[in-house]
Design a protein around this nucleic acid. Structure first.
Lengths: 210, 210, 210, 210
DNA sequence: TATGAATGAGAATTCATTCAT
DNA sequence: GATGAATGAATTCTCATTCAT
């Protein structure tokens, strides 16, 4: 519906005949990846057709097979990308700025779609490979989150802290989904400013700063 | 093929002959509803086939059309049932027992599947009718949750409080999904005892008891 | 092209509205099997589409999946049927009538399609399961053929005799294909009468009667 | 991807630098032709993809279009080549050596693939042009075979003799296919020595030397 | 009421072929 | 001459739904 129209790399200022055929493999791949991430996050795996994705990206359907082997392969690539993005947020943030970082992540509903990256992590394709990737991403992120608040593997109460970190992650993801997929009001139209306070309370309550 | 139908929720108290139960419209309906709720919650709407559901319920596929008109109709019925259940939890609970109630709800991974009721609320069918029902359920639940902590429509800061209630709800749903669908460890095997403490911290932080 | 029009079981004498829906599972299965055998024999596995077969049979495509799981499954069922038919010819024939039996088999270009059964044995689907079935059919048939001329497993010259039986079988199949698929003239329009003499010479030369 | 191209049929006598061979239209053409003949003979027309052939030949797919216009065109070229080869065998052989020539032809399972040339003649592409070529090849070959045993067009019994020649040809082709495509044992691992005796019996029985 | 046969729409994937470089 | 990106036309299979019994 509100799909971003495919913007050709070469700016198409004049009213030239809508030249298809970009002939840039890397860019085509990325266009597909972006379109897929949004569709998968918004509609779920099964409800998304490869044709939807290809149309959003403005490229031919067959290129999905070419670049990602299959719909599954494309989904896994999306998960990996979302994992990288999430790791960047939870990993490179000083302990006391974590809530802000999460808030920023959640709030970003833009085309870049950090929020949709989060929602994506709840979507299942039924494929074992994808499930494994997703669990890996979530485990690593929750460990980074816990580590930011003093968690060390093997220590006493280590398990407890990790559990709380996973709940904080779950909360963040839940908020992202209710905002971007379900569009629950007033949550859906809350700004980053609106979110950061409650999120700070939430994170600090689960993972008290030392 | 003729998979043994799962024992219906309503306990079969009387000493009736073991395999009666045929030709009972109400029971058939309930069997389908129970099977559908679990499938939809676990696998999502699009990934669930009506044949899966009918097989789980031990009844013929065509009866789904008969009793619920369509797959959409069955899904909406599931949402309504989940809404009723959720309303019972968030509505009939005194303010200071809300975290315990949520914890109980989330922890219940049994066949009855309170946890799956929560997960269900994140599942989308792409159908506008179902979306509306879901939003209704979530809005009402968050309002009840907020009301338990003193929210009244129209008052100053009313919006703020509702937003926080929705975030608490989102957190609960997020935890339910990570437990039941994603099976993230150690969250997935945490007991109700393990969950209630962190959840109390979380809810109290978002919605401070007055 | 020259596909036998699907004859409904219930004779359709009057000009009734071309009633689809036969509702007879066994018959539907057989209709598909017959249509498939002819198509596969004539055009080969890969060149035959399931839609062709279903149209020839006058039934819906989806029923191929229902009754035979897949195109592969249907092909294997055809091979098995061809094997049964062939075994009947080479197995239940007294030694000195073998050439006549083969001639009759090859000559039968009718709808029943004994000739197409033979051609089928040369068609490959690329599927390992089908290849195994085919080899089994051919081995058994050549053993029966050899046995009719005195072959016994393990005896001296046993291998030699089996080899000759396989060559006789190969000759029969080759003739069937050149007649029915390639339509090479004058071979293609030769009658059973025309074929039986040369075939007798051929078989007797390879497998001298004792 | 860049699979080592099979050594071209034409022996590379001179001591040229090992990996020249790029940019030689004639050689590229031949590489494609050799690869195609083997694939088509082994897997059939429809089951063979142009990409398979190009990969086997170690050249780019698009060159098939360039040199042979289309997949059909390549197939027809293969048929023509097989016809030339076959004509050489059946045409330039004195009457009493025909069985040996056929045996040699059938026995040759090497990369050059005389046997695969024979199998190829049974493969159909569904294209009328190819069918015509194939029939032409087979008719001419059977006429040559018959002529070696005294056949002259128009003479009495001329038709009879031609029919018998076609059956001998069919037998040869049948044996080739059962050996190379079906891999029926013990026929498949029989040597030229094993084959020549039975083949002599077969040919002499069908086409008695005068 | 219940069942299984039948159907048509739609989805993923493969593939020959055409272009732009 | 050669390459690899792109395309559109199939093709197989799945699935919700409808009918006849």
């Amino acid at each position: 519906m509100t799909a971003e129209p495919p913007v050709p790399a070469t700016s198409n200022t004049a009213g030239e005949p809508a030249q298809r055929r970009r002939r840039d493999a890397a860019e085509t791949r990325q266009l597909l990846l972006d379109a897929a991430r949004q569709r998968f996050a918004r509609d779920g795996y099964a409800a998304t057709t490869v044709r939807d994705i290809a149309d959003d990206a403005g490229v031919n359907v067959a290129l999905i097979s070419r670049y990602f082997t299959s719909k599954e392969g494309l989904f896994e690539a999306c998960l990996r990308a979302a994992g990288d993005e999430l790791r960047r947020t939870t990993g490179q943030t000083p302990a006391d700025r974590v809530p802000e970082a999460i808030a920023r992540h959640i709030a970003d509903l833009g085309a870049a779609g950090l929020s949709s990256q989060l929602s994506l992590l709840l979507r299942s394709s039924g494929d074992a490979g994808a499930d494994e990737i997703r669990r890996g991403v979530l485990v690593r992120s929750s460990e980074q989150l816990a580590a930011a608040r003093g968690w060390r593997p093997g220590e006493p109460d280590s398990e407890q802290l990790l559990l709380r970190a996973q709940m904080a992650l779950a909360a963040g993801i839940g908020v992202a989904v209710l905002r971007s997929s379900i569009r629950l009001e007033p949550l859906s139209s809350a700004t980053e400013q609106d979110l950061v306070g409650p999120l700070r309370d939430l994170v600090d309550a689960l993972l008290p700063p030392r």
